[in-house]
Amino acid sequence: MLYISARPQTVAADAEFESFRTAARLDDGDIRRHDLVTDPLMIEPDVTAVIIGGSPYNVTDPESSKTDEQRRGEEHLARLAVACADGVGPAVLFTCYGIGVASRALGGEVTRAFPEDTGTAVVELTDAGQADPVFGSLASRFSVLTTHKEGCVAPPPGGVLLATNAACPVQAYRVGERLYATQFHPEPTAKAFAERMDVYRNDGYFDAADYDALAAEVVRTSVTEPLRIIREFVRLFG
């Protein structure tokens, strides 16, 4: 299993890695880590499954505002998405920021029209989601943790919508048999998410003065089903 970080903030990347490792119930030796911000993407031939974490980056950021690291990372992740959709290489799970990269690379549209506030939201599985190998064992309606400034208009061509809600119509999709993408964060516990919010409290996702109230609301919420997505993905492909 390989985890790819696209976060410039080391403390957030460290915590995200631990959240994925814990959610997948993997030992340290069973999951590798790659920092896409500092190093070009290299995937060893023996890697059968890859998970892409979130990022404060947005694919809809003006190109003039993107750093060289962001542009390079998006290019490499786009290549990975295309290869996986074509049935080449490992299975891949793109999360949060990653869903935008994958969608655009595969011909989908990403806009600023579907943001969601920092905190919890409720999503519902589609009929396809309820029949999906990864999502099918989940409850048909469940709470998730989310914070994002952009969203997908629809799954990319050939994509199958797995989860949705009114605020953001594309919460999860699958392309082919081995490419999955979620708009929400499937990996953190409520406590871990609240701690991550602290790292980004001045990044425009919410009013910094509201942090304590928002964090308290998050940690009171039971968020269990998204963690099962990680476990099922690893069980099937890891």
Rank of each mutant, 00 (worst) to 15 (best):
V82F: 06
A121E: 05
L93I: 06
I229M: 09
R201V: 06
R79D: 13
T164C: 09
V11Q: 15
S143R: 15
A12T: 02
K66I: 09
T182P: 04
C152Y: 00
Y173P: 05
Q9K: 06
F94N: 05
D132H: 07
T126Y: 13
E232H: 13
A23F: 01
I31T: 00
A13F: 01
A209P: 09
I4S: 04
D30A: 15
G176N: 07
A172F: 06
P155S: 09
V59R: 13
P62M: 10
E63M: 08
V234I: 13
P90F: 07
E150Y: 05
Q70W: 05
Q171S: 08
V153P: 06
T111V: 01
A163L: 11
D207C: 07
K191Q: 14
Y57L: 14
V101A: 04
A12L: 02
T67G: 14
R112W: 06
S137Y: 05
V47K: 00
A166Q: 11
G53E: 10
V218Q: 12
Y211I: 10
D132A: 12
E18Q: 14
D39W: 02
E74I: 11
E63G: 06
Y97E: 14
D30C: 11
L214G: 04
G119S: 01
M197P: 03
Y3A: 08
V59K: 04
I51R: 02
P188D: 00
S19T: 03
S140N: 13
E150G: 03
P226W: 04
R201T: 07
V123D: 08
G158V: 03
D35K: 06
A12R: 01
P155Q: 01
I230F: 05
Y173W: 04
L106Q: 09
G54I: 04
G54D: 02
L214F: 03
P188L: 01
G53C: 04
P8L: 10
V122E: 13
H185W: 02
S19N: 10
V175N: 07
L162P: 12
V144L: 12
P40R: 14
K191R: 13
T10A: 11
